[in-house]
Amino acid sequence: MDGIYTGPQGDENNMVSWAMPGIIDSTADNLIMFQEANAILMGRVNYEGLASYWPFEEGEFADAMNKTPKYVATRNREATEVQWGDYGDTISLLAGDLRERVTELKNNIEGTIIVPGSASLVQSLLNAGCVDEINMIVHPVVLGNGKRYLDNISARNDLKLIATKRYETSGSMRLRYEVMK
């Protein structure tokens, strides 16, 4: 609830220990979100984790992850290529100015571009004015310290609540906000 996503010691993998009930509870809605997405945008760290798992899985969620066009934004100037198992034609590297490249991407893709996780990327996108909607799950736990998901935001962003959903089993809450322009 305090906006921290890494866990008490800053261990990003520790998220499994406290977020899993909400993740399991929201799986059906997350599947629909991925199935309806026209593109997936992710940061390098998230890409590395997802690319090591999803191309080797089967089922509806794997199909949504593997067949949807994916784009990786990174600050790492040494990164020149990205791979996604046998789905290499579905993934591209976004190089250059983030605002410019994401604006170009939004102009070329009709429909929804989602950003799963990727806190640093979301922060950069908010700072660049490239976020239309925030769709997040708040988990009923206060971690106290760690990395904040919406840290390093350089300017005020007004949000309008457009949808909520409570997950009974975990007590987690999905919140959808429109970013007011």
Rank of each mutant, 00 (worst) to 15 (best):
Y87P: 07
E57T: 06
N127C: 07
E110W: 00
S92D: 03
P21S: 09
A155M: 06
M136Y: 14
I113H: 05
V115G: 05
V142F: 13
V138C: 08
I40T: 12
N157M: 01
N127F: 03
L50N: 04
N76H: 12
I4Q: 09
L126C: 07
S118I: 04
R166G: 04
E178W: 01
Y149H: 06
M136P: 00
Y5A: 03
Y47P: 09
A163C: 01
W84E: 11
E58G: 01
M180Q: 14
M1P: 13
R101Q: 15
L150F: 15
D63G: 06
V138R: 08
A128N: 10
R156C: 02
P69C: 05
D29Q: 14
A163Q: 12
Y5I: 15
N108Q: 15
N66P: 05
I4E: 05
A39Y: 06
E60N: 13
N127M: 08
Q9I: 01
F61Q: 11
R148K: 13
Y87S: 08
K70Y: 06
Q9C: 04
A95I: 08
D29K: 10
E100I: 07
N38Y: 01
W54D: 15
G22T: 11
T6S: 15
D11P: 09
R99V: 05
N107S: 14
K165Q: 14
T169D: 12
L125C: 11
V141M: 11
G144A: 07
S170A: 12
R148Y: 10
L126Q: 06
E178I: 06
G43K: 03
A62L: 10
D25A: 15
L41T: 02
D29W: 05
P8F: 12
E57P: 02
S170P: 03
G85T: 01
N152A: 14
R77H: 07
S170I: 13
G59H: 11
L161I: 11
T74K: 04
V45M: 11
N14R: 12
V72T: 06
I4N: 07
P21Y: 09
T164A: 10
K147A: 08
K147G: 07
G146F: 07
T80F: 09
R101K: 14
T112E: 14
L31S: 11
L50P: 01
A128K: 03
